[in-house]
């Protein structure tokens, strides 16, 4: 299991164009991208057990085939405004390099293949971005009829959630 090594926005080895596969998800009103290589599974949220005393962005723990997985609420982690407690539609099992962590999102959009020219890295953008963000990808959102959309790219390694 070496997804940990891939768990950054490294180009896919089989691609000569340097394209990266990213899973697009919706959190609140924004679209985020998680490197597909780090996503192990997409689950319909199983029963959640909250952990008292844990930080606010921890939703709780779930059992996936007997393993206990910590689930974080991406919206709370990123300090997003979420309208009237919209329920989480999916939990991604993401390998952050240290453990398998559950990431609760509102909806999964689709898998995008981002060409290098479609990606702007945080380091070259002047915007004040959160630590969890590596950059943005410009994609065409089929659901909105082909208009350009922005995908905020998440670094799974940063999702330690401490």
């Amino acid at each position: 299991m070496s997804a940990a090594q891939k768990a950054t926005l490294a180009p896919e080895p089989d691609s000569d164009t340097g394209a990266v596969a990213v899973l697009g998800v919706r959190v609140g009103n924004e679209a985020y991208g998680v490197p597909l290589a780090s996503v192990r599974e997409i689950l319909v949220p199983p029963p959640m057990t909250e952990v008292p005393r844990a930080a606010n962005h921890f939703l709780g723990v779930i059992s996936v085939r007997g393993e206990i997985i910590t689930v974080i609420d991406l919206a709370k982690l990123l300090n997003l405004e979420v309208v009237n407690d919209e329920p989480h539609g999916r939990v991604l099992l993401v390998d952050n390099g240290q453990e398998l962590i559950g990431v609760a999102v509102h909806r999964v959009i689709q898998v995008y293949r981002l060409e290098p020219r479609q990606i702007e890295y945080a380091s070259v953008m002047s915007a004040d971005l959160s630590d969890y963000v590596v950059g943005v990808g410009r994609v065409q959102d089929h659901s909105t009829g082909g208009a350009d959309d922005v995908l905020i790219l998440i670094d799974p390694v940063s999702l330690l959630g401490e």
């Binding site: 952990v51 005393r53 844990a54 921890f58 723990v61 007997g66 393993e67 206990i68 997985i69 910590t70 974080i72 240290q98 453990e99 398998l100 962590i101 330690l160 959630g161 401490e162």
Partner: peptide, 10 residues
């Protein structure tokens, strides 16, 4: 089962 690393400080 132990709680994951993220929750080890709880």
């Amino acid at each position: 089962k132990s709680l994951g690393k993220s929750l080890s400080s709880v």
